[in-house]
Simulated assay, not measured.
Amino acid sequence: MNEVPFSTVFALALRGEQTHVVRVGDEPVALPVGEWTQPADVNDHRMLDLCIGPTLDVGCGPGRMTAELANRGHVVLGIDVVHEAVGQTRERGGAAMLRDVFDELPGEGRWESALLADGNVGIGGDPVALLHRLSNVIDPRGRVVVEVARPGVLASTHWAALQTGEQRSRPFKWSVVGVDSIEATAAEAGLAVASVERIGERRWVAVLQGAV
């Protein structure tokens, strides 16, 4: 099977192709794209209630969160490394740009909130580096709103790939951070946990702010 760029397979997923996350030694797990392409649901709304002021949606995907924040009257920008994701976000009425979070971003140091939904704290396979980066992107009085895994899930970093049909992406590093490890992870990044909330039956969200 030929390996192709991550963005190629993720774009196919966003267009409706059934896609799985493949990890060595594990059974493939379906990528929940259907949840991401629906309008924001009641639990998404509860997460978005934690965002204040101008918000950067990191790894915005097809843009349901970006679009809903815009509907609420927020200044909001979605960023993603996949053209299809940026295009779909714009089609939903949200502002979005093709950009890696570690590249130069508009408004650095002035965003009041940065949002990491749908497990996006795993981007790049280094949560400490990601959160430290966002600590410099937000205003010193701002916050990072980050979705984390449920209690009991150990922090981990692994190699994974996306597969749809006969196409598989090149391996990429991804991390998981749970409720039990977010405090230590945030502290390494120079942030502190202001609150942790359970949203619905299976989602947990932490609000991080500058360490005192």
Results as ranks from 00 to 15, higher is better:
Asp41Arg: 08
Val42Asn: 05
Val42Ile: 07
His45Ile: 09
His45Phe: 06
Arg46Met: 13
Arg46Gly: 11
Met47Phe: 10
Leu48Gly: 10
Cys51Tyr: 00
Cys51Met: 05
Pro54Leu: 06
Pro54Gln: 08
Pro54Arg: 13
Thr55Pro: 00
Thr55Trp: 09
Thr55His: 04
Thr55Glu: 12
Asp57Ile: 00
Asp57His: 13
Val58Gln: 13
Val58Tyr: 11
Cys60Tyr: 04
Gly61Lys: 14
Gly61Asp: 13
Pro62Gly: 03
Gly63Gln: 09
Gly63Trp: 06
Met65Lys: 06
Glu68Asp: 15
Leu69Ala: 00
Leu69Asp: 04
Ala70Met: 01
Asn71Gly: 14
Asn71Arg: 15
Arg72Met: 12
Arg72Glu: 12
Arg72Gly: 10
Gly73Val: 12
Gly73Leu: 14
His74Ala: 02
Val75Cys: 07
Val76Asn: 07
Leu77Ala: 13
Leu77Gln: 12
Leu77Lys: 12
Gly78Cys: 09
Gly78Val: 14
Ile79Thr: 01
Asp80Phe: 11
Asp80Arg: 14
Val82Asn: 08
Val82Asp: 15
Val82Glu: 14
His83Ile: 01
Glu84Lys: 12
Gly87Ile: 04
Gln88Met: 07
Thr89Tyr: 11
Thr89Ser: 10
Arg90Thr: 02
Glu91Pro: 03
Gly93Met: 14
Gly93Val: 14
Ala96Val: 08
Leu98Phe: 00
Leu98Cys: 04
Arg99Asp: 06
Asp100Thr: 06
Asp100Ile: 05
Val101Asp: 07
Val101Lys: 04
Phe102His: 09
Asp103Arg: 01
Glu104Asn: 07
Glu104Ser: 12
Glu104Phe: 06
Glu104Tyr: 05
Pro106Gln: 10
Gly107Phe: 05
Glu108His: 06
Glu108Cys: 07
Gly109Leu: 02
Arg110Ser: 03
Arg110Met: 02
Arg110Asp: 00
Arg110Gln: 08
Trp111Arg: 03
Leu115Tyr: 07
Leu115His: 12
Leu116Asp: 09
Leu116Phe: 10
Ala117Asp: 14
Asp118Tyr: 15
Gly119Asn: 10
Asn120Cys: 08
Ile123Val: 08
Ile123Lys: 02
Gly124Tyr: 11
Gly124His: 11
Val128Met: 07
Ala129Lys: 13
Ala129Gly: 10
Ala129Cys: 07
Ala129Glu: 10
Leu131Trp: 03
Leu131Gly: 03
Leu131Cys: 03
His132Trp: 05
Leu134Glu: 12
Ser135Gln: 08
Ser135His: 06
Asn136Met: 01
Val137Trp: 02
Asp139Phe: 06
Pro140Asp: 09
Gly142Trp: 05
